[in-house]
Design a protein around this nucleic acid. Structure first.
Lengths: 136, 136
DNA sequence: CTTGACTCTGTACTATAGTACAGGGTGTAG
DNA sequence: CTACACCCTGTACTATAGTACAGAGTCAAG
């Protein structure tokens, strides 16, 4: 299995090299293997994990939430039902976010149409978004 | 037109009272009218704006990005084309976020199915998400 | 055999987004 | 008329998520 140093992984994933140490500290990634002289050696799975973290952050999840997402799996300490419950909760959150974004998308599209038809107003059209979406 | 004090608006929108002063400082809301003795008086539009801000934050937008979204309108300093361009860019970002969330949703659903069928594994299934989504 | 590019650790600093006072004014209820 | 719940300002503190740097080790190329 091919391994990467910290600098290589950072480059590969487009993150700052120090962020990798930070994620390790925050337990978002497992402490990686070490070379003989103590260099961290990362696997491709580590790279996938880092990419997942960065993407999830862009979708509005905090590192703590991302940790919860990454821990969603069945293990010796946890029943399937408990994982199922948590997963369903996460699914709900994700669906809620999608609804919010779709409502924003609709408003942006409407703005574009209005702009293209040149029937312009100077009020702020985007406030129309989330009109009935207080519970997000 | 009905007006609200800072405390009332904070309660109405479920935010900390000090956050309202912060948003004013960050220019996310206009400085509100003042009563004779200098109390801030907010309108319903201010409330809508605050709710928009909070919702957009939950969708992963920073306050700076939210400011950009709120400024998307035609005014004396800016041409329609320029607004149109910015709006289309924002639309793209929103659509990208939706794609990311949909891919996450798919993985969560798959996990739920697997869990319900009791064909369980102990690897981390969520890493399947974003496999080809590095560009988000 | 040393110079430059990497790595290690620990610690300190930064940006963003608030949150919490302190010290003072206002205004209604008892 | 005074106590309590508000509001005002300014300033200081906090949490989250990094980012930078100092001081030291490693190693390949010139």
């Amino acid at each position: 299995m091919k391994t990467m140093t910290r600098g290589e992984l950072a480059k590969e994933c487009g993150v700052n090299i120090e962020a990798l140490r930070y994620y390790e500290k925050r337990r978002l990634i497992d402490p990686p293997m070490r070379s003989e002289i103590g260099y961290r050696l990362y696997s491709n799975e580590d790279a996938a994990r880092i990419r997942f973290i960065r993407n999830a952050q862009k979708l509005g999840f905090t590192l703590n939430e991302i940790l919860e997402l990454l821990k969603l799996r069945v293990n010796k300490n946890e029943s399937c039902e408990s994982v199922l419950k948590k997963t369903k909760k996460k699914l709900n959150e994700v669906e809620q976010k999608i609804r919010g974004l779709k409502s924003m998308k609709k408003v942006l599209k409407k703005m574009i149409h209005r702009c293209e038809e040149s029937t312009l107003t100077s009020d702020c059209p985007i406030l129309g978004s989330f009109e009935s979406g207080r519970e997000l």
